[in-house]
C-alpha cells in the first residue's frame, strides 16, 4: 500500500489507538486466571495491535521495527519455554506442567503460580503467529 491510498483519518486514528490496544492485550493476558480472557485472546489482541500499526505506518516501517526473523525466533522460542516449564514440573516430582510455586490468596496477579507464566508465553506466541500470517500475506510477489 502506498502512502497516497491511505486516508489521513485512518492513519492518525489507528496510530493513536495502538498503545491502548496493546495495553488491553497485556491486561487480558495478565488477568487471564481471574477474569475472562487468557493467553489466546490476549495474544490475538496484541497481534491485531501490531497489524493496526502497520495499517497506519505502512508495512515497511513496521517490518523494520518488528522484523520477520525476529518474530519467527520469538514464536519458536516461546514454545520452547512452554515445554521447558512443563518439564520443570516433571523434574519437581509432579505431573507435566505441575506447579512448583507457592499459591497465595486469590485475587492478586501472582497467585496462580505457573498459570500467569504459561498465559504470558502462549500470548506472545499467538501474537507472533498472527503477525507472521499478516507478513506472509503482505509479501510482494516478484513477477
Amino acid at each position: 500500500m502506498k502512502k497516497e491510498d491511505r486516508s489521513e483519518i485512518v492513519s492518525i486514528t489507528s496510530r493513536k489507538l495502538v498503545p491502548y490496544i496493546l495495553l488491553f492485550g497485556l491486561y487480558l493476558i495478565s488477568y487471564g486466571h481471574l477474569s475472562p480472557g487468557g493467553g489466546f485472546q490476549g495474544g490475538v489482541v496484541l497481534g491485531s495491535g501490531i497489524i493496526l500499526l502497520s495499517l497506519s505506518r505502512g508495512i515497511f516501517l513496521t517490518e523494520k521495527k518488528f522484523s520477520s526473523p525476529k518474530i519467527t525466533f520469538l514464536e519458536a522460542f516461546m514454545i520452547t519455554i512452554f515445554i521447558l516449564l512443563g518439564i520443570i514440573g516433571l523434574i519437581a516430582g509432579k505431573s507435566f506442567l505441575g506447579n512448583i510455586f507457592p499459591l497465595k490468596k486469590a485475587g492478586e496477579i501472582p497467585t496462580a503460580g505457573f498459570i500467569f507464566l504459561l498465559n504470558l508465553v502462549i500470548g506472545l506466541k499467538v501474537g507472533a503467529g498472527i503477525i507472521l500470517i499478516f507478513y506472509s500475506l503482505c509479501e510482494r510477489q516478484e513477477e
Binding site: 491485531s48 497489524i51 498472527i130
Partner: peptide
C-alpha cells in the same frame, strides 16, 4: 471468554487479512 475470542479473531484479524 468465547465472546472476546470471537470479537478479536472474527471481527478484527480476519477482516484485516
Amino acid at each position: 471468554d468465547v465472546a472476546i475470542a470471537e470479537a478479536a479473531v472474527g471481527a478484527g484479524v480476519t477482516t484485516t487479512l
